[in-house]
Write a protein that binds this DNA or RNA. Structure first.
Length: 294
DNA sequence: AGTAATCCCTGGCAGC
DNA sequence: TGCTGCCAGGGATTAC
């Protein structure tokens, strides 16, 4: 499940290989995943274009071409990999963290590969998304920065960490929704998903079901101070892989080994030994320690 | 207007 | 073995 650190890891990988490459041809097999604000469909619009840069805001990857900008949301299971067919059999495999099965780091396009962009030098950018929750949205480049998908986002915690506390103080006071639900709301702060919201609340000793407007200023300050370094640490670990996340080379990250609570329901809290509990908030599972978080 | 519930979508897995 | 049903969840949509 790609959240900010996973998307940033992918961005860094793609930023090394895409700029300057020319797109020869693109094929998008599922139209529902593609939204075009251009005169043509995405596949036709990008053909002949050259990559300029790869940016990121929150969980949204922004690929700037010459005249077109692509906003890519990876959803739950989106994988965006740069593939060089010449390196197909490089002998590199990754081990599935749950099943222990080996998987090729660079698999050839399969039934879950919905978008394939072929470059003039034979390399490819492949988008694979098992659950199809991802979206590709295309804009004329000049209009991309004012796109609705970007305008509706709250601040990115890594783009402006020094403003995070003041922003959260203001935003959390306005709502009685559970703090966990609010942290997942991309219009409040963008980039956090279920994993990092749970980790941040544990790290700050805050119960996920607390109404956001019940948090004391000191607790909000603690969240604002905790979130950016937590995300940076995960980026240093190349992201968290539970099942589907892969970086732009097709390799899993290792931050799952650093998680304190996410996915550990029923196990002992690392801090106090209490059995971790789970609850559902906003339709999402939250794992928390009833002793450390109040 | 603010909040909560529902839906999309598939693979993995438990239970029978 | 093979089937059924449930679970995972980001974000849009619908309902309250």
């Amino acid at each position: 499940m790609p959240e900010l650190p996973e998307v940033e890891t992918i961005r860094r990988g793609l930023a090394e290989v895409l700029p300057g490459r020319r797109i020869a041809k693109a094929v998008a097999s599922i139209q529902k995943m593609c939204v075009s604000h251009l005169d043509t469909c995405i596949a036709d619009a990008v053909a002949g274009e050259t990559y300029d840069q790869v940016r990121r805001i929150g969980k949204i990857l922004i690929i700037d071409l010459e005249k077109v900008t692509l906003l890519v949301r990876l959803g739950m299971t989106g994988q965006l990999t740069f593939r060089d067919p010449k390196l197909q059999d490089d002998g590199q495999f990754s081990v599935h963290p749950v099943t222990g099965l080996q998987r090729a780091a660079q698999h050839a396009p399969d039934k879950h590969t919905h978008i394939v962009i072929e470059h003039s030098d034979g390399t490819m950018l492949c988008y694979r998304d098992i659950r199809r929750f991802g979206r590709w949205i295309a804009y004329p480049r000049a209009e991309a920065d004012s796109a609705e998908e970007l305008r509706s986002l709250g601040p990115d915690p890594l783009a402006c960490p020094q403003e995070l506390e003041a922003h959260l103080l203001k935003a959390l006071a306005k709502t009685s929704r559970a703090i966990k639900t609010v942290l997942l709301d991309q219009s409040v702060v963008c980039g956090l998903g279920n994993i990092y919201a749970d980790e941040a609340l544990f790290g700050c000793g805050i119960c996920p079901s607390r109404p956001a407007n019940s948090l004391a200023p000191a607790e909000i300050a603690s969240l604002a101070a905790f979130i950016p370094p937590m995300l940076l640490q995960s980026i240093a670990n190349r992201g968290t892989t539970f099942s589907d996340y892969r970086d732009s080379s097709g390799h899993p990250g290792s931050n799952q080994n650093s998680l304190q609570v996410y996915g550990r329901y029923g196990s002992a809290c690392y801090k106090c030994g209490t059995v971790l509990e789970k609850c559902t908030l906003g339709g999402r599972t939250s794992t928390w320690c009833p002793r450390c978080q109040s």
